[in-house]
């Protein structure tokens, strides 16, 4: 006879998130999206990307914690999530090892390229 999952000794019922929390997270995500759109119209100079990324990270954290139930999970699930971020970190770090140490040289294109080389030579 097949044992019903609820009867198993190590069975833990899933945590049920109250609907108001889902609604609150949804509203927060909408607000963050509006904020991203609004800030796009303001030139913050070198902070443009930083601000956009900070908002995006906030939205991601909300989704991971509440919609993906990580706030209510433990053990292996959290390790998996941390592993995923660690792997993302590997990708970003090693890509930056190229990007931040690259020898940037502006190479002019077209007619001006020929002139640039000519000036260097003569």
């Amino acid at each position: 006879m097949v044992e019903h999952p609820e009867q198993a000794a190590d069975y833990h019922p899933p945590h049920i998130v109250p609907v108001p929390i889902y609604v609150a997270v949804f509203v927060a995500l909408i607000i963050f999206t509006a904020l991203t759109t609004g800030i796009a119209y303001i030139d913050l100079g070198k902070w443009n990307t930083v601000v956009a990324l900070v908002i995006a990270v906030c939205k991601m954290v909300l989704v991971v914690l509440f919609f993906m139930h990580v706030k209510y999970s433990k053990g292996l699930t959290r390790i998996v999530i941390l592993g995923a971020f660690f792997w993302l970190g590997i990708m970003i770090t090693l890509t930056c090892s190229d990007e931040l140490t690259r020898h940037w040289e502006i190479v002019p294109q077209g007619w001006s390229a020929g002139m640039h080389i000519a000036r260097q030579l003569f």
Binding site: W87, I90, M91, L94, S97, D98, E99, L100, T101, R102, H103
Partner: peptide, 18 residues
């Protein structure tokens, strides 16, 4: 396997340090 990919890019303009 996840930390070696740059060897495909030695001659594509990747930084020498990388």
């Amino acid at each position: 396997s996840f930390i070696v990919w740059g060897h495909h890019m030695f001659v594509t303009g990747q930084a020498l340090y990388a």
